[in-house]
Write a protein that binds this DNA or RNA. Structure first.
Length: 162
DNA sequence: GCCAACGTTGGC
DNA sequence: GCCAACGTTGGC
């Protein structure tokens, strides 16, 4: 794909939240242990792609902000770390099983866009998040991306465009 | 390669 | 805490 793609990454904020991302120093987005999500990280997420950060399994479920990919997929060091909960005995340096990326914060939304509100949007009815809620790394179409950014825009909100 | 059993996720 | 949906494991 030539132009940049957009994504949604899920996280439990008790483990890692948008507030753990910095706009200056990149953070490692590691610990993804699902094959479909792994394939996206390894093969498709590119430097410069933008990703929504989604908070799951918490009090305020929804999209918390936007981040920028500062390094594309590379072998997740945690899989080799015996002391890590993400250690995987079946991974080898030559054949790593799991991949991670680096991110930096682009924009923390003033208000989390709640899942319940996303579900109310007819334009988002076919969004993967609503259809495969367990996929922790997922592509977001340009149309969905624009719509969600508009939901975050105070201008759009005050003018009742949504 | 199938599929039952089991484990995990995640909204509610 | 519950439970449905989903993902993984392992025997055959």
């Amino acid at each position: 794909m030539a132009s940049s793609q957009t994504w949604l990454l899920k996280t439990e904020p008790d483990e890692f939240s948008i507030d753990d991302l910095s706009s200056s120093a990149p953070s490692v987005w590691d610990g993804v242990r699902n094959y479909k999500a792994r394939n996206y990280l390894r093969d498709d997420v590119q430097l410069g792609d933008r990703v929504f950060i989604y908070h799951s399994s918490c009090r305020l479920i929804g999209i918390a902000g936007l981040a920028l990919v500062t390094r594309s997929g590379y072998a997740d060091p945690a899989q080799f770390d015996l002391s890590s909960p993400y250690y995987d005995a079946k991974s080898t340096i030559d054949r790593p099983r799991w991949y991670c990326i680096d991110l930096k914060l682009e924009q923390r939304f003033e208000r989390v866009i709640p899942l319940a509100l996303l579900k109310q949007q007819p334009q988002l009815a076919d969004m993967l998040l609503l259809r495969q809620p367990r996929l922790s790394v997922q592509p977001v179409s340009a149309e969905h991306f624009r719509h969600i950014m508009a939901m975050n825009s105070p201008v759009a909100l005050t003018q009742g465009h949504l």
